[in-house]
């Protein structure tokens, strides 16, 4: 378990406590509007599609496709010096929302990464309390 984590860590806000608590339990949760039925990333107190305040939590299947990516060679923060090159991504979840993440378990090579490739969420336990949802190619 990483105890010397030098990368930026999420500072949860009241509306995102549940998101980060569930991530630490190995679950990716999203919000869905009880009125219009649309899902959203990231957690808010209202629905960005219809303005409703009736929001419920759902568990994502964790199935996603690669929407786009970059391969980072120059670390944008000292905490990532040992990680370059690494793959940042925007993934599209099966529930229809896009979220930022990393693709791991693949060579950081533009020819290996294919937009639209299927991915599955995995959880990277970066400190005792924090796990980051990341994505791995589906075999």
């Amino acid at each position: 378990m990483a105890t010397d984590h030098t990368k930026p860590l999420p500072v949860a806000q009241p509306e995102s406590d549940h998101y980060w608590e569930q991530a630490a339990n190995g679950k990716l949760v999203l919000q869905r509007c009880s009125d219009c039925g649309e899902a959203q990333f990231y957690p808010r107190v209202m629905c960005i599609h219809c303005g409703s305040r009736s929001i419920e939590w759902i568990e994502s299947s964790g199935r996603a496709t690669l929407f786009t990516f970059a391969i980072v060679h120059v670390p944008p923060h000292p905490g990532f010096r040992g990680d370059v090159p690494y793959v940042t991504a925007i993934v599209e979840l099966e529930e229809g929302v896009r979220m930022p993440s990393q693709v791991i378990g693949i060579e950081p090579d533009p020819d290996q990464l294919r937009i639209g490739m299927p991915l599955q969420v995995v959880f990277d336990q970066v400190t005792d309390d924090v796990a980051l949802p990341k994505f791995r190619p589906v075999e």
């Binding site: 990368k7 930026p8 999420p10 786009t68 990516f69 980072v72 940042t88 991504a89 970066v126």
Partner: peptide, 20 residues
């Protein structure tokens, strides 16, 4: 909260993803 922990920090990384 949602991008920095992944090293999605600063313009080059973000604009690179848009360009891709």
């Amino acid at each position: 909260q949602y991008e920095y922990p992944y090293g999605i920090i600063g313009p080059p990384v973000s604009y690179a993803m848009a360009c891709r």
